[in-house]
Nucleic acid binder design. Sequence first.
DNA 1: CAAGATTGAACCCTCAATCTTA
DNA 2: TAAGATTGAGGGTTCAATCTTG
Lengths: 152, 152
Amino acid sequence: MTNKKPLDETEWDLWHALKTLSEAGLAAVGSVLETATGLSGSDFGILSRLEDLGDGALSQQRLQASLGWDKSRLSHHLTRMEGRGLLRRVRPASGRGVSLKITQKGRNAVAAARPVHASAVREQVLRHIRPPEAAVLLELVRRMRIPPTNGA
Amino acid sequence: MTNKKPLDETEWDLWHALKTLSEAGLAAVGSVLETATGLSGSDFGILSRLEDLGDGALSQQRLQASLGWDKSRLSHHLTRMEGRGLLRRVRPASGRGVSLKITQKGRNAVAAARPVHASAVREQVLRHIRPPEAAVLLELVRRMRIPPTNGA
DNA sequence: CAAGATTGAACCCTCAATCTTA
DNA sequence: TAAGATTGAGGGTTCAATCTTG
């Protein structure tokens, strides 16, 4: 039995606030990062995982599981990143699938981006959130039981 | 002087929770809506504004201000919605700009979508938030004074 | 001229279909 | 065959350039 009545003003305000909070915060961090480093949030997520989870190399499977992305989205994105020289696709000698290796250019890019990312997250988002508010947000996300995405 | 150190675990957990909320949690509402009604969250935001703010007609200017969208994004989106017969563009007799009028098909679509949207928002999100928590979140967003976003 | 709107190119995401190889 | 990856089409978003009209 779900309630079909329109959202009242209180409900709508809260829904809108949550949407705005998470979307605007994410967009602001991505924008700072991309402008300053040339890496999008997605690029950064991939390159930092190659280093942090695999010391520079990782199977596409593991990367996909960590990101929680559609396989097609990941394949398209890897094609673009490979074209920009940030990583290479390698067919492993034995076993199916594909392995990803970060290039030197990729290492340089992610090294430059790490401090920018950290300070953008603090400046654009975390700075505004006080501990009790953080607790509420963490609890909300936990209660929503959203399927996991690991990593940066 | 911005802090360039990597995010600590507490910082990272909160950042990740916000990312997850936006990318997976709130997206679920849009997904339910689109599957059940054929309207995306954006479509719904536009059509419901035409009815709620203008009784079926609205200047593109006012709509743009309410959505907080880029004018180009809005123009492209209106072209697609006009092609689907959900609204019409009309050049007002006097004055510059364009006026949008919802069609009967658009009225039917948004009428069918309203209860689906309301119950999806409640089921996926609001259900998990207790009143004191809602107050905390509203206060947080108000303090951040975030520019208006998306509808739906 | 300037406000308001459109266009085109480039990029990103999703879905379904297809290819590759153990 | 089935797991793993790629492809192509189609919608969505952004940026800069362009058109339109008071």
